[in-house]
Design a protein around this nucleic acid. Structure first.
Lengths: 243, 243
DNA sequence: CGTCCAGTTGACACCAATCAATAGAGGTGG
DNA sequence: CCACCTCTATTGATTGGTGTCAACTGGACG
């Protein structure tokens, strides 16, 4: 059973729209899953394999990525507590291979869901299916926003945009956006997420620090001037809405 | 009612996994929709508005895009016959604004679905919900693949990849991939999809033409050497699977 | 106290953007 | 039917943002 005590962060991922915890209980309760703790750098899903589970990030960080023949790597998603991983699997063919690898950053607690069970539950519980579809829509919106960054925005904008997005996603929507948060992502991961070289990311981070806009240091992100940084990055958090 | 006579292309979008047309009938039949013909350059959806319909592309082409303050534009998706547009809306809040504009290229025939109806049908028909979720998963995979292109691949690779993907998507899976197809997308649209300047796209297209790999001319695409082009672009069509 | 890895900084090269100009292709009206 | 206009495609010259290569620092950890 899912531990409903894990609170809002978990519920957020599955039932963003649910008004009452009863509603959440209804469908969450029928999803059998196993809680696990994984150490840093654990590969939760490997690209190309079809025998992976679906996960709910309960605590910690992870990212999905693909490595190319050229040796370079593209990070395609960042996962924080409350995010769902691989749930669209519940609608696809048994043998459909994973389209990216997923890897933890720092120790992580996850809830694993067996794909067969997920599929069967989905077929019986329209509420769950709809919630997962809604989540998928938000994930697509995030992906699209990153695409826009990589296609048409400068390194400065991308970087500002990236950390602003993270600040919203790690915040509890009820208490507003946090301007300071822990973030274990190395510059290598971030640069591969933004399609930049680690060196250039580093350089531009320095610029942003000197401009008193953003400070990334010691695994902590501090947004020094949210307004100006948002302006500079053309950041509009609308696409992150959970509804 | 949806016109079931429109054949495989329509069914593909909604029921990739359905073995029999009876299965398709079952849920398609309950989706009331209006057929419409739109001229070229019609805006089907406008970014930021929340009063848009869901569409099934029955014939023709369209693309979704966002224009930035800087004046540049990023094309985020290309739609061909059989594709679904805006169906994830069926799971989101009434007021959720469109996260991109959608525009036709050439005359297009579409089936419009009223969002309210879509939402209600989704809640009652798990089969439909699952099919739409499956479609959404494929769309995400395509988006992710483009993200990888923009982040880590050269202009040559991106361009080859783009046209190879299109060739698969416009093909009927049953009869294999076509090496020649009509494509009304201008170089401006393609360059904005790939995060390149139109001039550079043009230059690289010439290189690919001279290398006898790919020819794009007069609204027709011809893949001259699928194997070498695939090699060059690091293209693996697995992510385009409908299952 | 050496090793390793993330982070930092500098010099240089290069891919692709920008600016500028022209050529075609398709449509429209006189 | 031609002149004209607009949009798309094409090519050249130049610039610049970002990648690459290389070296060094500093903290974590055994």
């Amino acid at each position: 059973m899912l531990d409903l005590q894990t609170g809002e962060n978990l519920a957020r991922g599955l039932y963003p729209g649910a008004a009452t915890s009863d509603e959440r209980n209804l469908a969450i309760g029928s999803l059998d899953c196993t809680h696990r703790l994984y150490p840093s750098d654990t590969e939760l899903i490997r690209y190309g394999r079809s025998d992976y589970f679906a996960f709910i990030m309960e605590k910690g960080w992870a990212f999905s990525h693909r490595s190319l023949k050229s040796g370079s790597r593209q990070v395609t998603s960042i996962y924080v507590a409350g995010d769902l991983i691989g749930f669209s699997r519940g609608s696809r063919a048994e043998r459909h291979p994973a389209d990216a690898s997923v890897c933890t950053v720092g120790a992580a607690r996850v809830a694993e869901v067996e794909p067969d069970l997920l599929k069967r539950t989905l077929a019986n519980q329209p509420t769950l299916a709809q919630a997962i579809l809604q989540n998928e829509a938000r994930v697509s919106a995030i992906l699209q926003e990153r695409l826009i960054c990589l296609g048409r925005r400068s390194a400065r904008s991308r970087i500002g945009h990236f950390y602003l997005e993270l600040s919203v996603r790690v915040s509890n929507a009820d208490i507003g956006f946090t301007n300071r948060f822990a973030c274990p992502l190395s510059q290598y991961v971030v640069s591969d997420a933004l399609g930049l070289s680690a060196e250039h990311l580093n350089r531009v981070l320095r610029q942003l620090r000197l401009a008193r806009l953003l400070q990334v240091r010691n695994g902590h992100v501090e947004i020094l001037d949210r307004h100006r940084l948002g302006e500079l990055s053309d950041f509009d958090p609308g696409y992150l809405s959970l509804k």
